[in-house]
Design a protein around this nucleic acid. Sequence first.
DNA 1: TGTACATCAGTGAACGCGCGTTCACTGATGTAC
DNA 2: TGTACATCAGTGAACGCGCGTTCACTGATGTAC
Lengths: 208, 208
Amino acid sequence: MASTILKQLREDEREARKSLILEAVLKLFEKKPFDEIGMRDIAAEAGVSPAAIYRYFPSQDELFMEAFIKDLSSIKNVFQETFKEASQKSLPVDPLEEMGKAIVHHLIHNEATFQMMSYLMIKGNMPSYLLARFQALQSALIDKIIEVLTFAGISDPDRTISHAFISSVMGVLMTFRNYPGKEIINAEEHIHLLVSLIAKIFKKGLQP
Amino acid sequence: MASTILKQLREDEREARKSLILEAVLKLFEKKPFDEIGMRDIAAEAGVSPAAIYRYFPSQDELFMEAFIKDLSSIKNVFQETFKEASQKSLPVDPLEEMGKAIVHHLIHNEATFQMMSYLMIKGNMPSYLLARFQALQSALIDKIIEVLTFAGISDPDRTISHAFISSVMGVLMTFRNYPGKEIINAEEHIHLLVSLIAKIFKKGLQP
DNA sequence: TGTACATCAGTGAACGCGCGTTCACTGATGTAC
DNA sequence: TGTACATCAGTGAACGCGCGTTCACTGATGTAC
């Protein structure tokens, strides 16, 4: 009996330490592209030695993937809120545009998450254990987006319109996030402008 | 007199050899992502030793950039043709959609060009000598696209609409080129479907 | 026309560096008797 | 309660590998006299 409790406690402790490392990674994710983050950086940020990390994660890839998933999952919550807010206030805002802006905002302010997302989308041959996890995440996101679209009055039985909208938003982000010669603040402004333009075009262009 | 001619000939020969290496890179670009192409691969493909490459290009980065520019410039010609064709046949095709499809087609069938384009767009801090060249290329492309848009009857004094359209197309490409679980042939079909949908939405959504 | 020297393309092997990962070890905490 | 042993977190240093790049050298072609 008592031993199981102790075991549980130790398990919790282990999870807590694991989180500590993940938090360190997420902190670095905010300011650096993921491919410039080394195990030594993470170790320093978390206050442990590089070797210690390997007690909790089998490889850098797995660690990054876990951090990425944790980070990106938080976007889903933002959707949820947007969705509920709009439904309660009986549409004072345009859910399509709000959703686009929510995605954009998050990915503009998290350097590595943005880069990793892009990287995973672009990269062809990926180890399948990573691919599977990314795919699951992507599907979940798309489902959420479809929810919002349906709610916004856009019926889309075969998901084509949803795909078009999502990828347009992603495209704006990827094309102009680091558009040369623009400061990041201007880029953000420009991107928001484009996203709301696209939202408007979609709304109008999809009317019967 | 004669010596200048000889000098010229030698210069030509040098250029020819340089092209040989560039061609080798482009050949590899078709089948592999650029970050999996090493100097040894290029050397093997071109039939020279790795060290020989450095007689013509100062670094791998410069070599890749030059190959990339050469490759991507060929898209511009496709635009030109699309543009002229449409103008001669007095609009049997939709130039907006055709242009989108031309971009998509080229980038689907050139693995490394696609990846490098995406990479350059996404990557933040890039050596400025590379950035400058990419920027020039990007501007030139955007100008061409604006030409087509203007021709298609979309007036766009501040380039916003052009930006929105281009990035939407790029977004579809980036999002679904390697969409997990889809074979590349299906992906291509799906992408073309999305691009023409977007072209339609834009056309309709932009009518006054 | 022949000889000595300069120039340049090209080579195979080696250098060097970054960086993920592993190794041998320490010290603390838990367990058995 | 004390002692011998097991377990596990954590460490600093070293390993090892890939890969861009450089080095010392060879052989061919051009130039001067």
